[in-house]
Design a protein around this nucleic acid. Sequence first.
DNA 1: TTGTAAGCGTTATCAT
DNA 2: ATGATAACGCTTACAA
Lengths: 340, 340
Amino acid sequence: MPLTLEEIGKLAGVSRSTVSRVVNGSANVSEVVRERVGQVIHQTGYHPHAAARSLVTHRTRVIGVVIPEALTKLFTDPFFPLLLRGVTETCNSHDYHLMLSLFSGPDGQFDMHRRVIRSGYLDGVIMASTRLDDPLVARLLQDKVALVMVGRHPDERVNYVDTDNLGAARMATEHLIRLGHKKIATLTGPLNMLQAQDRVAGFRQAMDAHRYSLPESLVVEGDFTEGSGYEGMTRLLAVRPSAVFAASDAMAVGALKAIRHAGLRVPDDIALVGFDDVPIAEAIEPALTTVRQPIERLGSMATELLLTLIEAGSSEEPRLVQRIVLPAELIVRQSCGALR
Amino acid sequence: MPLTLEEIGKLAGVSRSTVSRVVNGSANVSEVVRERVGQVIHQTGYHPHAAARSLVTHRTRVIGVVIPEALTKLFTDPFFPLLLRGVTETCNSHDYHLMLSLFSGPDGQFDMHRRVIRSGYLDGVIMASTRLDDPLVARLLQDKVALVMVGRHPDERVNYVDTDNLGAARMATEHLIRLGHKKIATLTGPLNMLQAQDRVAGFRQAMDAHRYSLPESLVVEGDFTEGSGYEGMTRLLAVRPSAVFAASDAMAVGALKAIRHAGLRVPDDIALVGFDDVPIAEAIEPALTTVRQPIERLGSMATELLLTLIEAGSSEEPRLVQRIVLPAELIVRQSCGALR
DNA sequence: TTGTAAGCGTTATCAT
DNA sequence: ATGATAACGCTTACAA
């Protein structure tokens, strides 16, 4: 049913190669022929067949977004949709397409790798919220698939885009310091995650810079969840900090509850700053001061970078690894006490 | 670099046709040959090239999920990720792949149609949160693309899966009635949307069934946003209902604020029920009684249905249209006053 | 500038 | 049961 180059050629009175040239904007076509063929293409609504094309070009104009969706967090958090929006926007404007792979468990991974990568569906891959030791990373690297990660990765061969977690945490902490707090605690994420590490590191930097003492009792490890925030804060209550920097909004919410159960108020007794700016942050009482990542831009920059890699990929030069780190934004609301 | 059937054949001492038969599980292969070829395939890690395959089979094993992302709602709401999760799960288990198209505006639509559908990338399409008069629906129908919509659509040719919005709204309203409320109001969504229509209809059914009077002053149209909930509730305050059914959680949150600004309390003075069960519903004080849709199942059922259509598509029988309606769940929390 | 023809990696038809 | 061989729709030398 769909038309082929051959048929368009017949209609326009030229060979299929000429039509192909017109379609691909080759220079070697006379103006008059280009015009005539263009007409026919337009009238018939011809569109080249992707599979046939990529069979010979070895390019699909499709990139993959791979997310190990074990993390339920993804489904209560706008991270995932925003990232995808950034990716699709860039894809759309570059005439690329997006294949989405969510999978759970290593089987899923293995499968996905075989089916999607090896079958030649994709020109490149964006991986997000990947665990550090994810075996898929190694495999993709080995396959020499064009790869960009969202969230930094220690392997020196990986290209990535990331939020400046360290800078953001420093900024949040300094905000608290500027408000006059001296005894500031932090609820960290799971320290086997780079994001969590970076956020404590930023916190420490700020404290160090101001020569504030930081006994280890002020640093409590959580796992980004509300429950761990509640527990962590309960422990923290023993040393009674005047302010707390939580490495996620969920933990901040947990902390808030713990503080209230102890009969104390936020921000009057204890100031609170979160991280993520999930919708809940604005909805709760008091509204949460927090850090907002440029998630959508992360997505579009990752894509931009990936497309560059893909397009450069043909040339065999040892392409250099690129890393892009974007600043985050401090959203000041009530919980830090700045807006009294 | 990647291996071909031919090369596998050479290694196994058979022709490429035989290898193809093994790969596709054809019956006409002797056990011994199947074994030998299987070995080689396994050792070499051979995987068929998708483009070459679909060039001849006219099938890609890729389906598209199309979402007109104008709706910012999608990015503060877990609807989108949950739906996608349902879709990918089913895709994964059926060895299909998912291409995601988000676009804004009619240009994007037109483009997407040309590039993705016409180029033969997809075997079928799932459309979600589409406007009633979306021209893309007509076009897809006309192209005879296998299509399933998430959210019902009036065109008699479209297959869809949907939440039983009507039944859910009736259930929510009856819950309020059961709690003894007589003067119950509703904040509706924009009435040019089917969901919104269905939800008022369910509300009306419940009221009718109990022969409650329903002056039009108790029905206020909003647009699903918090702002419209606030305004709507403010107007409602004049007639002082004892309970309100809001057609979205966002509107319920707006209503809550309006009620508080008027110096009244929820649920003591006015009981409140929302719709959607967004994360905020559980986080606010009082926690919101609301309706939860089986979003993930919607996604997987839509996919299941689509794959059926695709696989049946070869046979030319006039395939019958299918519609699946799933029940929603009432999540009882504090705002309705049932848990005192 | 244009056309001819080879080939991309499969599947499918037809012999054998 | 297996192997040639012809498509599938396109790009791309190479010829003209």
